[in-house]
Nucleic acid binder design. Structure first.
Lengths: 215, 215
DNA sequence: TAGATTGTTAATCGATTAACAATC
DNA sequence: TAGATTGTTAATCGATTAACAATC
């Protein structure tokens, strides 16, 4: 199930859902692929194709898709209903920012605790999430059967900590460090890479400025 | 110039550069596309194609590319040498984490100051970056001719702040808020979208777990 | 009924991969 | 010299777009 859905489709899914929540708040009952495409700057074709992968209920010719049905189908598809537990490792500024980020709950992610080696912050709470010593990490992962870890340690400790996580049974690592980490094939890694993002933004900016200079 | 280079290529460029720095530290003088591809889990073909877009000096058959030449070419290509100034708007935990992130300097981005509306933190410094009142934002952008803004305000203020930034002359917005912002066509926007990233990570995890259950 | 919109199939587009002559 | 590796061209692959019959 879902095996054949492309990464790009998954990327776009949260955008549809967000738009649908807004439409629902406005009282809209139905929405067409044309409308969704306009809001999100996509084509109706790609919207129809994406939605066909997630939804059980068909849309109705002429009226479009039921907003409620679509919300339910996408929430189910993205797993927003059955929250998954996660640990966060490294409670510096970025780590604490993510610990305190309330949006994750909406996305079906429940951070149970932050872990750190610094005695000064161990025992504190950030937005009601406790900060525990790294020594308790492995036990917590195994006891609670946690599959997802958010990695926000300093770059130089990223690989060592990734090794610990993998050994403890973690199966997906969301890597916010600038370091590249290597893990076995059967572990999912998603890199939140500032350098890459900035390179793309700079390229876009350069292109825009060039275009203007040519005119 | 560079107009025809794809987004994907830009995405991969910082990875090459990072690997090259490491190779240089190890004392390597030359590197082949095969080696770079192995380290970064790419194919030699794509490495050769990517590098051909950035470099001036050709590689040498049999020996590969000069590490030093390649570093210089990629730094130039990515603009790491001539740092660009940026402002950061919204100095909550995430904003402060980014203000204190020393890596940006390496990537050619110089955050000149953070801006916020909260009197309690205005006047403070985060890693030697001053936090200034939002009232001074427009003046700073225009006076220093700043083109890039990092947006880390709460989601509900994202659009209003984006409007202010565009009016002040900003041409590229790095959007870390969960909100979707609309700006004119001639403004570059890069969304650092947690929901999208998490959706992709979850999909990868699900696929991995499914594969195992099938066996 | 007429026509807007669906789901789906076929055509297009662009990026990746494979192949290979040139060459150090 | 022999062969590893380059730059580049052609083939493949996959995603997006366009087209269209079905239909409410």
């Amino acid at each position: 199930m879902y095996g054949e859905v492309s990464i790009q489709t998954f990327h776009r899914m949260p955008g549809y859902l967000k738009t649908l929540y807004e439409l629902k708040k406005e009282g809209r009952e139905f929405v067409s692929s044309v409308t969704l495409a306009e809001v999100l700057k996509l084509t109706p074709s790609i919207v129809k194709k994406d939605l066909s992968q997630a939804k059980v209920q068909d849309g109705k010719p002429k009226v479009g898709y039921s907003v409620d049905d679509l919300i339910r189908a996408l929430e189910e598809f993205l797993g927003y209903n059955n929250a998954k537990d996660a640990v966060l490792v490294g409670c510096g500024k970025l780590g604490q920012a993510l610990l305190g980020y309330t949006g994750f709950a909406d996305y079906g992610l429940n951070i149970i605790a932050g872990f750190d080696i610094d005695d000064k912050i161990i025992g504190e709470k950030v937005h009601s999430k406790p900060i525990l010593p790294t020594g308790k990490l492995e036990g917590a992962i195994q006891k609670l059967d946690i599959k997802i870890a958010i990695l926000t340690v300093p770059g130089e400790h990223a690989q060592a900590m990734a090794d610990v996580l993998v050994r403890a049974g973690i199966r997906a690592i969301w890597n916010f460090t600038p370091a590249h980490i290597s893990v076995p094939d059967n572990i999912a890694v998603r890199n939140e890479n500032m350098a890459s993002s900035l390179a793309v933004l700079s390229a876009q900016l350069r292109e825009i400025l060039n275009k203007e200079n040519k005119q």
